[in-house]
Each structure stands twice: as structure tokens, then as C-alpha cells.
Design a protein around this nucleic acid. Structure first.
Lengths: 214, 214
DNA sequence: CGGGTGCTTGACTAGCATCAAATGTAGTGG
DNA sequence: CCACTACATTTGATGCTAGTCAAGCACCCG
């Protein structure tokens, strides 16, 4: 297991930076086009990754062939940390993306706080459970847009990059329902959609979006 | 943060036991009645717990006052490990329960693999996402019964202990829908329900249950 | 006995899935 | 340049599933 091949030390110092020390590891960052596979279910899990730019989708396939997207990872987020030695899910790029691998070779030290990564991903997964179960389709989509907007705190216009089908498989809805919800958000004057694929969001009423997403 | 107040060391030795060494810590196990609070949202998070017997529910309250149960913890399972210094959820006993606390005082070493606990809880949360989003109400209830049955691998009869309302808040359904699903499972001759509160499950067709839960 | 709690069942309704089709855009080849 | 295909998105019509509201039953306890 990954965590048994590493030595992790946590001191009483609060805060923890992954600064230049971590970045000078011999593993170089990797640039990928859209929809490229990073790893697949069943593969041996020896590497974790940090997203430097772009976005990655982590998903599973059910017995019936349905795709379910567990999470999207944006800039700065980590993925690929597994409970066992084998991948239980798939990782693919959503768009052109740079990722930085951290390999766990024998006796190698990963200069990274694995526990912090695991707990952050756990918190994300728990929050997603709340979004999915408690809320209507419209609220789920609003929560998704808000999650994306949170990655661009400065801008009121940004590119989601995910297709409607990605969003549907992430929120447990159908493509049609997602499209209808975006239409409702437009009609409520909460956002505008631009770009040929309607994936560029311009936030008109951020407060209303937040009120709806909670 | 918990993980910053502890020193955790993982060697290359595979496997990791929480044997007598951990159990001789000065923290004694605690016996609680049903529906007692272990901790609440907003409290300072300094302790993690292992369930010795019984069951614990971990839940959150939404802005609208709805309860959502993130997980049930049974014998051997750990809870209370938080991302920050403050509790984000509530922990209560479902029934008469024994728990063992592990406090993270300054300079104290927790003789426990926190990363392993975090990753196990992450895997549980991810699996629950799949159950909740992909499946019909009947399949969700079947998956819940299967999860409970997995905690009693030897017995074909066991006490779930959770109320219908607990199960509903866990699966994102209503009490009525849960009751209707149990009725369907009975009519399909997959299980029988006994006890005055109908919480004792007798598995009649385990294979059919598994087939339904996946 | 009456009141409280937890479980079940029935009737009705709202919301999402499904099926189907239209639109807009890009790319290809004649 | 236009015809054609391919793909992503949107919209409409319809049906089913689970939520809502309501009532009834079983059990327990004062």
C-alpha cells in the first residue's frame, strides 16, 4: 500500500506548505490533451498526482456500464491516493491539463502530507453526499456551478470545461435535466452562458446562486 | 488540526495491527446508552474513537433542519477524524454502545494509523455516493441491508438496530419509502422481519439480495 | 384507558427519466 | 461552395418513481 511505503511525519507546526522542496523532485510534470487517460481501474497504484492546470475527472463504471464521476480535480488538487494497491477508479483529463506525479518507490520519501490529502478528499466526498441527496436537480446544478465558481474567485466569467454529460454523471442526473436546469438559471437571471458549447459561465447574480446552492 | 498534533510513522512493513499496545493507552473505553451524544458540530476536535460494540451514527443538519446521516460506524470502525480543529458533524449512539477514545494531547503519540482510517472512511464515502446516485429506492435499501449483513457474516439473522427514520436519513429517502421497500423485499421472499420494531432481519435469499444491491 | 411512538399502507402529486426531435456548429469530401 | 455526417445542446411530450398527506395498526407506559 502506498501509505506503507512512505514515511510521513507531522510536527506540531500548524500549516504545511508544498513549496519548492516538493517541486524539485525528479518527477517532471506531464502535459496532456483533452480526454486522455491517466490511469484505469485495476492498474497498480504507485503514483499520486497534483493538478497544475486544467481539470481531471475521477470516475467509476457500474456493473450496468453507467459512468459515475466521483470528483473533478482542479488546479492544486490531488488525486490518485488509494486505499489499496490497485486502482478502483479511472482518471481522465477533461481538457488540456498539466499534472505532476509523485511516485512511491521502495524506500522513497514522498514530501507530501498524505493524511491531509486524504482528509481533504474525504471532506469533499462528504459534502457531495449532502448535495446529491438533499437537493432538487436545480439545486444540484446550482451547487455545481458554485463549486466551479469557487475555483475562480476573482472572475465573474469562467469556462466550466465539462460537458453536460460530465455534469450529469457527476450529479446523478440526465443530460436533459442538466440542460433544463441551466435554462432555468438563465431565465432567473442568475447567469449567462457563452461560447459555442455554452460552457462559459458569466455570473450575473452570485448571491442568488449561493442562496440556491445551500 | 489533529494530524498536526501527532507524530505518525509508517514503515515499509506491510500490515499494521492495533493490538494490545494501543489498547493499554490510558484512555478507557466508554459505555453509552442509546441515542446519547458523543460530540456535536462546532466542538473542538481532539479525540478520535473506535467502536468496540454497538453502533454510532455520524450526521449533519442542513440549513433547513434536515438531518443527513453520513455513516453508521459498527464494531471496529473509527470515527471523529476531522479535517480541521472543529467538529463539522454530530456523533450519537444508535443503541447501547461501547467506544474507545484516543486523545491527541500536545506531544502525545496516537498509536494508530490515521492515514489508513482516513482512506477507509474515504472509500466508504465514495461507495455510498454510488449507492445513492445510481440506484432506485429499492436498490438503496437492499444495499443498506447488505451492508448491515456484511457486519454479521456468520449469521443469517441479525438486528439492524437503526430505526426506519435513521435508514431514510442515511439513504436520502423518506420513512414511508423505506417501509414500502422493506415490504417489497419481504414479498420477494428475500428477507423476513422480526421483533416488535421489525428491525431484526432474517436473510432468506442472500444471493438475491446481493444481486439487487449491486 | 388514553396518549405516545414507530411502522405500515393508501391516494394523490410533483419532479425527474425517457423517448423523440430540432437546432447549431464543425469537419469532410465532392 | 454545398451536401453530408457527427456531435453537443436544447426543447417538448409522456410515464414512472418517490415524496406528501393522511390514516390505521401494534406496542408500551403512565
Amino acid at each position: 500500500m502506498l501509505q506503507n511505503q512512505t514515511i510521513v511525519k507531522h510536527t506540531t507546526v500548524t500549516g504545511h506548505r508544498y513549496g519548492s522542496a516538493a517541486r524539485t523532485a525528479k518527477d517532471q510534470s506531464i502535459r496532456l490533451k483533452a480526454d486522455e487517460t491517466i490511469y484505469s481501474e485495476g492498474e497498480h497504484a504507485l503514483t499520486i498526482y497534483q493538478v497544475e492546470s486544467g481539470a481531471v475527472r475521477i470516475y467509476r463504471l457500474t456493473a450496468s456500464g453507467q459512468r459515475y464521476i466521483l470528483s473533478f480535480c482542479g488546479k492544486g488538487e490531488w488525486f490518485g491516493l488509494e486505499t489499496g494497491t490497485v486502482r478502483t477508479d479511472f482518471a481522465e483529463t477533461v481538457c488540456e491539463t498539466c499534472i505532476k506525479p509523485f511516485r512511491a518507490n521502495q524506500n522513497a520519501v514522498i514530501p507530501v502530507d498524505l493524511l491531509h490529502i486524504a482528509l481533504t478528499n474525504l471532506a469533499k466526498a462528504q459534502h457531495k453526499q449532502l448535495v446529491i441527496t438533499e437537493q432538487s436537480a436545480l439545486k444540484r446544478v446550482a451547487a455545481f456551478v458554485y463549486e466551479m465558481a469557487d475555483r475562480h474567485p476573482a472572475d465573474c466569467e469562467f469556462d466550466m470545461m465539462m460537458s453536460r454529460s460530465d455534469i450529469a454523471d457527476y450529479l446523478g442526473l440526465t443530460v436533459e435535466t442538466v440542460a433544463r436546469c441551466f435554462t432555468k438559471l438563465r431565465k432567473k437571471r442568475i447567469l449567462c452562458l457563452n461560447g459555442k458549447l455554452q460552457r462559459i459561465v458569466r455570473l450575473v447574480d452570485r448571491d442568488a446562486l449561493i442562496a440556491m446552492a445551500i
